[in-house]
Amino acid sequence: MSIIVNLDAVLVKRNMKSKDLAEIIGITTANLSILKSGKAKAVRFSTLEAICKALDCQPADILEYVED
């Protein structure tokens, strides 16, 4: 997929665990794992907003477009 999810890198920078982020934004760790692994087909704006708020970052810090 040409959209890369850099959530892991941002989590490391913020020194936060996936479990904690999942709890803050109100999704399951399984769904967060799907998002991190790039298996997700789509991301809701509400989820993206919650992630950005929790990690104090911009959507571009999490999502990156890479040409195939």
Partner: peptide, 8 residues
């Protein structure tokens, strides 16, 4: 269904 399940 898959698309719906994989929308986070």
């Amino acid at each position: 269904k898959q698309e719906n399940d994989l929308t986070i």
